[in-house]
Structures are given as structure tokens and as C-alpha cells.
Amino acid sequence: MWPRLVANKILRKRLGSNNFVADFPRNREIPSLDRPSLSPDSIFCHHKDTHNYRVFVSTWNVGGVAPPEDLDMEELLDTGNTSCEIYVLGFQEIVPLSTSNVLGSENNKVSTEWNSLIRRALNNKNTGQDFRCIISKQMVGILISVWVRSYLCPYIRYPSVSCIGCGIMGCLGNKGSVSVRFQLHETSFCFVCSHLASGGRQGDEKLRNSNVSEIFSRTSFPRGPSLDLPRKILDHDRVIFLGDLNYRISLPEPTVRLLVDARDWNSLLENDQLRMELRNGQFKEWHEGVIAFAPTYKYRPNSDVYYGCFHQSKKGEKKRAPAWCDRIIWYGTGLKQHAYIRGEENFSDHRPVKAVFTAEVGVIHPLKQFQSLFLSERFDRITRQTDDFVCKGRSSFQM
């Protein structure tokens, strides 16, 4: 373990492969319905250049527990009340931490179980929906899975992933991020699923800030065939950062518990470490919705009782103050948040958090599509074939 770990550290090796799971080949040709039509109506008609799509995002640290058989994923996804075109689900600790998996080996069995549950919930026969997975990627305990309505699949291009390990010695995969990107029509999306350094002691927030800095600096994506695609996280048009960010509340533990009991969220949030970073720190210029729900960490599994409560604590047991560890934030313009809530599934020591956004997406004007046809390699091939046919045959038209 240690020789490999040291080598990875020296070489600044990016953890995990660039491969990912999807419902269709990543390099397939875009179907004909994405190509410009040559009919007069499509050439000269005028359409709006911006479409709005609803995006569901969730994050959940599942505490190393495999999904229970009775887990209601439809409740987590809120499919009965919310209808979105894109679903992005991030998980942390989907496998228990062990020496054998922190170096980056992927146990696909658990991620397959989660994806099967997601597929079943999104494609419930009662809702008549049809969703496809465009990217699913696991690095040790971090999993991100992206699903879109099937009619959008032809307009999804350049999906790719980038994995960054920030654990022991700055490279183990028990902490870090899995970032995914794709282009929908003419707009690029980047979703970063993270699990940052833990710890509630004074100064531990600096470790989390260091993780974030590493993720921003080391994450990179391919430039694409035309070398014009964004490579870094913040270069994308729509960026959402989600995960167990592990930021705590900078108040004494007894004070935190009293304020939680009083449901005084404002006093707690004034001392929330992530809010401080949003104001003037590592996440300056990022945005977060209004938090109107109880802290999501740390619960006793299968209960609604916070870990380490005075009447529940055992002798010698380490106390952990409640905190909003699980967060969803976004960067830039073109995203509008409509909901920011937590779920109540309780088999983990964390509660899931979910958000719903409207995302603006640029769409090429049909006339521009028609013009792009004449600038494409496909049109060059057509004209070359036509020229060969004319040269080889006899023309019946004479001047």
C-alpha cells in the first residue's frame, strides 16, 4: 500500500480511470434528429435561442450501508410532486472504508444496486417517464449518477469525468471528488460530487478549504475534438457543487445543541463555516439557497436522535455537535433554485439534501444549424461524392 501511495503522491496521479457507466456508447454518432433539416420551414422559421430545463440534485452520505430492500427511492427523488428533465444524484460512503478500497479500486456491485433503484424509481410505470443514465462514476465511496429524459439524449455531447483523491497524503480516494461534465445543446454543465475532510476541532476547516483548492486546481476534462470545450470546473456554463462538505458550526457543542433544540437556524448559520467561505473565502461568488431545515448530521442510525445527546451518550463516547455537513451550492448565472430541502430517510447518520433548479440552455437557431451544415465535414463529404459522380457520369445539360 505505502509504496504505491508515495508514488501516487510524487506523480500527482489523478485517482480513478476516465471510464464511466452509461446507457449508450460515449462515442456514438449523434442520431439524425439532431441534424439540421433542409426543409424551408426549418431554414427560415424563428425559435427562441434559450430553453429552460428543470434539474434535480441530491447528495447523501449513506454511511457505508448498502441500500435497504425497503428503501423508497421515489420519495427521495420526489417523483410524485416534481417533474424534472435532469436528475443528478451524489452519494458518499457507499462502501465501508477499508485498506483495500481507499487506493481507488472500484466495487461496482454497490453502485449497480444504487443505479438499479434510481432507474426503477425514475421509470415508474405509473408516471410514464423514460429516463436514461448518461454518466455514472464511482471512486471508492463517492458515486455520482446523472439521468436525463430519453428525448434529450441525442442532444447530450462530450460526457466525461475527472476524479481527484484528497485523502491521506493528499491522494487517497476516501476523500476527494468525482466531477462530471457534458454539453446539452450549446450549454456546458459540470457537477462536482465531493467528500471533504472531516473533523469538528478548531482549524479542521482549513483542511476542507485545502481539499476544495486541490479539487479546483487538479480537476480537468478533455478539450474535445475542436479543442474548444472547457477544461476546468469554473470554465463551464452551469456549475453545481454537492456533497458531504463536512463544514461545521464554530460554536461550543452545548451552545449548538441548545440552538438546535430551539430551532434557531439563523444564529447557527451566522457561525456556519461554509457560509463564512461563501461570504469571503474559498467559495466566494458561489451561491446557496435559504436553509430552513434542521442540521443533517450526526444522527444515530435508524433514529431521529442526534448522536451524543446528553441523555443518550455513553460513557467515553465522542460527542459530535449537529451540523449542516451536506450541501448543494452553485456558481455563476443561468441557474435558478426553486427548492432546497432535506429528506428524512434515516438508516444513515446523515440525512439527504436535495434541490431543484431551472437551468437556462442555449439552443442553436435552425438557420444557424443550416449554415453549420455547409461548414461541416459531413457537407464536404457530400460535395466530394457529388463531384465524383458528375465527373464520372455524362451530363445532359450543356451551355
Rank of each mutant, 00 (worst) to 15 (best):
residue 276 M to N: 08
residue 301 P to I: 06
residue 227 L to R: 15
residue 320 R to V: 03
residue 150 S to Q: 14
residue 321 A to P: 04
residue 226 S to Q: 13
residue 102 V to I: 15
residue 313 S to R: 15
residue 304 D to R: 12
residue 21 V to Q: 03
residue 161 V to D: 01
residue 171 C to Q: 09
residue 357 F to P: 05
residue 48 K to S: 09
residue 310 F to L: 13
residue 240 I to K: 01
residue 369 Q to L: 11
residue 107 N to C: 02
residue 339 A to H: 15
residue 218 R to M: 09
residue 193 C to K: 13
residue 230 P to H: 10
residue 120 R to N: 08
residue 178 V to Y: 02
residue 379 F to M: 11
residue 144 I to S: 03
residue 80 G to H: 13
residue 8 N to H: 07
residue 301 P to G: 03
residue 391 C to Y: 12
residue 271 N to F: 07
residue 218 R to Y: 07
residue 306 Y to T: 07
residue 313 S to E: 11
residue 180 V to D: 00
residue 336 K to P: 00
residue 2 W to C: 01
residue 138 Q to P: 00
residue 234 L to I: 10
residue 290 V to S: 12
residue 260 V to L: 06
residue 116 S to W: 02
residue 169 M to E: 10
residue 143 L to M: 08
residue 152 L to P: 11
residue 203 G to M: 05
residue 303 S to K: 10
residue 263 R to V: 10
residue 5 L to V: 14
residue 249 I to W: 11
residue 90 G to V: 03
residue 57 V to L: 05
residue 265 W to P: 00
residue 231 R to F: 00
residue 327 R to A: 04
residue 205 E to H: 12
residue 328 I to G: 04
residue 71 L to H: 09
residue 155 Y to A: 03
residue 302 N to V: 01
residue 100 S to T: 12
residue 57 V to S: 01
residue 53 Y to G: 01
residue 283 F to Q: 05
residue 209 N to V: 07
residue 280 N to M: 02
residue 170 G to E: 09
residue 256 V to F: 08
residue 312 Q to Y: 12
residue 196 L to T: 15
residue 167 G to Q: 09
residue 205 E to D: 11
residue 187 T to K: 05
residue 329 I to H: 06
residue 231 R to C: 11
residue 84 C to W: 05
residue 51 H to C: 05
residue 335 L to Y: 11
residue 14 R to D: 05
